[in-house]
Amino acid sequence: MRVNWKPFVLSLAVLLILFPFVYLVFLSLASEWRFPEVWPSYLGLKNWVTVFGSETGLLRSFFSSLLISLSVAVFSTASGFMISKAVFYHPKKRTLTLLAYFPYILAPVVFAACLSFFFLKMGLFGNMTGVVVAQFIIAFPYALLFFSSFWNEKVKSYEDLVATLGGNKWQTYTKVVLPLAKGLLMICFFQTFLISWFEYGLTSIIGIGKVQTLTIKVFMFIKEANYYYGALSCCLLIFPPVVLLYFNKRYVFKKLV
């Protein structure tokens, strides 16, 4: 009889994928786990209670990150969508699209160093607005390139058709263009949220330690060798993307397939 290995291989793959996440949760519940002990001396909610008591400012970082990422995702998705249309109809479309790749040529830290002078002059150094603007500079070109595939002759024909049927610009957008782009808009929102959520280089330079996002905190804990808080902040770091992924899967991908 031939053994069917497929379920075993699949289960192993699922276990391997899930292991880091389960281990992070486990580590966030532990403390004082020293070599060669095989089990932590304490396993409980102590770290979580401390965090929610805001002693380490993790919860504040979580909300700061959420506010920054939501702002970046909303602004970059909305402006990327609108401006990608202008780029599509522009005679110098190719040059403009090429320019959108510019922020990705440089490493984020180098890019931030280049921008820092201007941010300092504009009073955007070390505050949340500055971090939002800096992350927007990275997320916006992504949104622009993402939506460049949406605009085409067919969408133009839809717009013209609505106009001849008596629709104004607002009606064209609300009744046709936005419903057509709904799936892509949600995916772009999700992606730009993630770009901002996990951004480290730009945020650390423009935020100069005053704006402590969750990603910055994670690196700080790791540098301090505080693995338990590091794991806990990683759990917090993963939570919003998982929620977004769930909504994307439930409401977007199902409709796109």
């Binding site: 024909s157 106009a163 001849t164 049927l165 008596g166 104004n168 057509l180």
Partner: peptide
């Protein structure tokens, strides 16, 4: 006159039905 004010409808070779 703007197209939306002309009351002239343009029909394409493609049916262009709104998929939603």
């Amino acid at each position: 006159t703007r197209p939306e004010k002309r009351n002239i409808v343009y029909l394409y070779q493609e049916d262009l039905l709104f998929p939603h």
